[in-house]
Design a protein around this nucleic acid. Structure first.
Lengths: 227, 227
DNA sequence: ATAATAAGTTAGATATATCTAACAAAAATA
DNA sequence: TATTTTTGTTAGATATATCTAACTTATTAT
């Protein structure tokens, strides 16, 4: 097999592998244990596909895999995954801060650029941005070694009537959700006051800035992280 | 076949196809007719691989292919190829002008980013750069419709003793060659005066700016485009 | 405890871009 | 013109990530 062939295969390899590793990393953080089924749903792949890839990644010492057990990243896998997430989040920050995109536009672009192989490219972004610790959605950016220190945020939905909180991050970076927040004038670092919580459906009425009274459904309150 | 699978396959497809189209476009501009052999050399793939891809691209109406004949892009193929080259060259310009890379560092990064699918991303670059017509190596950037208007440059090696010329573009964007030019203090828009041409090996002695007498081999003079 | 459902695996099929080996055509050379 | 070399094609193999169908294990509900 010659050079360019290897180049492609390597690219393809890394593209696919990187998506498994990244998804496994993110799912672990969201839910703790991650099953083959969870991965298959999130990646929109059939379960046998995931099973066979887990075997392959286990061979490469990137995941711990035992039949019928949840899957875990190895230390190498963790480092690799964090590296991709670093590239993704740096890119998002660059797209917003340097190129002037809205926070709702950047996820899909970063999803592609995160696979670029060029340390200097991401180092330059990092330097231009002044070594940011968070992306435009409030998610922490892992450092070059792959260490990630996430401040402990609470869900807005876990707050009680009368509390005050600052909106620090979103648990969903989809364009649809972020457009909704834009339409409500909700951006990061906004100070919120919980006016009331409806026990029936968990919806909340809050006030912030020039908004005296906005009602958010439980679905939305579950996606807002505060401190 | 489901969604993400299609996503990957589409990506792979486009990555590979785009490289064939781009290479065919560039080779046509360099040499006129392009053979399967030319493509196979440039892409570092074996000839049967290229033959079979030509058949596939012909089915998709992207190239004109007849057995044992040179290959040509169709109008669609031409448009596609120009679009990729536009993305490549815009990216190079962005890397140099906005991110501060040297002209010798950007080719490999742009080679990866040119495959990103996001019209807004490249539109934004274009806008930030003020709709540039040339990349950092002096190559023309095709417009959004894929039209490319290249000014007619001459090779420095075609100039005669006593002539004056302005260095406008390079015919080789490799890091190695550009580092050599950097070491000679040769950058675009530099005014040159040809002091002498050695008939034996075609090497040239020129002066420019604070360099009173520099000798360039024929190999180098063949890669410098002037007006 | 048993039956039903969900999750996971195995085996085998498909599609893709690549390769090698063998053969055919075209071009260059003697 | 005949021969050799280069170029190009065909056929068939390989590797990869995906899929479906059939089967197994684990979990949930009755």
């Amino acid at each position: 097999m010659n050079c360019l062939c290897n180049y492609y295969i390597c690219l393809m390899n890394s593209l696919v592998e990187e998506n498994y590793l990244k998804t496994l990393f993110l799912l672990s953080n969201e839910q703790g244990k991650v099953s083959v089924n969870d991965l298959s749903k999130r990646l929109e792949l059939k379960m046998p596909t995931v099973t066979s890839m887990m075997k392959k990644l286990a061979e490469k010492r990137l995941v711990h895999y035992e039949k019928y057990k949840p899957v875990r990243l190895t230390e190498n896998g963790q480092r690799e995954a964090a590296h991709i997430i670093r590239k993704h989040r740096l890119t998002e920050m660059f797209l917003v801060d340097v190129m002037g995109f809205g926070w709702e536009e950047v996820h899909d672009i970063a999803e592609q650029i995160e696979h670029v192989k060029s340390p200097v490219f991401f180092d330059k972004m990092d330097q231009i941005l002044g070594h940011p610790s968070f992306d435009p959605h409030g998610s922490p950016i892992p450092d070059v070694e792959g260490n990630i220190q996430g401040p402990q945020y609470r869900l807005l939905s876990a707050c009680k009537k009368g509390e005050r909180a600052t909106f620090m991050a979103v648990a969903d970076s989809s364009e649809e959700f972020l457009r909704y927040l834009n339409s409500k004038g909700l951006s990061l670092e906004t100070e919120l006051e919980i006016l009331s919580v409806e026990p029936f459906d968990g919806s909340m009425t809050i006030s912030y800035r020039d908004h005296d009274s906005e009602t958010l459904s439980k679905v939305v309150a579950d996606k807002l992280l505060v401190v």
